[in-house]
């Protein structure tokens, strides 16, 4: 069970500013049904140029509802320029904290606010989410720019944290490598310490050959054996690894793919990223 504090529960059970403003000056929507949460924010400016009224509608869990509600309280009375500066961290602080896995709820609040402001400025009928950058997480439609933003604003240093804050990487997981690269880029190559520690130091030739052999016998051979094949290590020449396929693999028309997608990929993962695998020529 989630450990929500009293304030989060209070704003969930008795949210303020729930609803929708008719003829608003700005509308922002963030999230989708597939994502499991969505927020629609509407606001109206007063004659003094400050936000006079703001309302929200949320499909989502307790922390999504509480984040949206408290944010509307925070922006009321602010100018657009002041409101624009609110980050997800401000929302979390105001709530007195959220469980780590629920941080994305506060990010959704901030993004809906920004979308509503962009909509006000652009005067468009309806604004969607930030579409700058390229999509990294296809499961939840998260771009590199969005990921960068949560990393910078919340001082994140691991892929798991990035997933907690913006959901990226939380579906099929195929983009986790790319998220790691974004973290490394943003943090000036000073990424998560464990990641670096996990990468082996420069290996001696002997260590390298032993590691290649171990990877083949533990990681690769069982896969090939399942299809009646086998593999032998013939030689290692610098970063070039020469192997021979045996059994079913030797006549298999897709052996070339196995060579790259299985053998080379595993050796790159477990031994060294510069490895090139070749089949022994007859």
């Amino acid at each position: 069970m989630w450990d929500y504090n009293k304030k989060v529960m209070e704003y969930f059970l008795h949210p303020v500013n729930a609803g929708e403003i008719e003829n608003p000056d700005g509308v922002g929507e963030e999230g989708s049904l597939a994502c499991g949460d969505m927020l629609k924010l509407t606001f109206k400016l007063g004659k003094d140029g400050r936000i006079a009224d703001v309302k929200f509608k949320t499909f989502g869990c307790a922390s999504a509802i509480a984040s949206a509600s408290i944010m509307t309280e925070m922006v009321k009375g602010l100018t657009i320029e002041e409101a624009e500066k609110i980050t997800n961290k401000d929302i979390v602080d105001k709530l007195g904290g959220l469980p780590e896995q629920k941080m994305h709820c506060s990010v959704m609040g901030m993004e809906a606010l920004q979308a509503a402001i962009a909509n006000y400025r652009g005067g468009k009928a309806r604004a969607g989410k930030i579409t700058e950058g390229k999509i990294v997480c296809t499961c939840f439609g998260i771009t590199d720019k969005e990921i960068e933003k949560v990393i910078i604003e919340n001082d994140l240093d691991s892929v798991e944290q990035a997933t907690n804050y913006c959901k990226a990487g939380g579906g099929c997981g195929s983009c986790r490598g790319e998220i790691q690269q974004i973290i490394e880029k943003v943090r000036g190559k000073k990424a998560s310490k464990e990641e670096i520690a996990a990468k082996p130091k420069k290996l001696t030739n002997l260590q390298k050959i032993q590691l290649i052999q171990r990877t083949i016998s533990e990681q690769i051979r069982p896969l090939l054996k399942a299809d009646g094949g086998d593999i032998d290590l013939i030689d290692v020449d610098g970063s070039k690894v020469i192997v021979a396929f045996r059994g079913m693999c030797s006549q298999c028309p897709t052996a070339e793919f196995t060579l790259k997608d299985v053998v080379e990929a595993r050796l790159r993962e477990f031994v060294s990223s510069d490895i090139i695998v070749e089949e022994q020529s007859e």
């Binding site: 989630w2 529960m9 059970l13 949460d37 499909f59 989502g60 869990c61 307790a62």
Partner: peptide, 14 residues
């Protein structure tokens, strides 16, 4: 439809 399970469970929990 249109609402989320955790919010329902926490409401029931009250």
């Amino acid at each position: 439809e249109f609402i989320e399970g955790e919010a329902i469970l926490l409401s029931l929990d009250q």
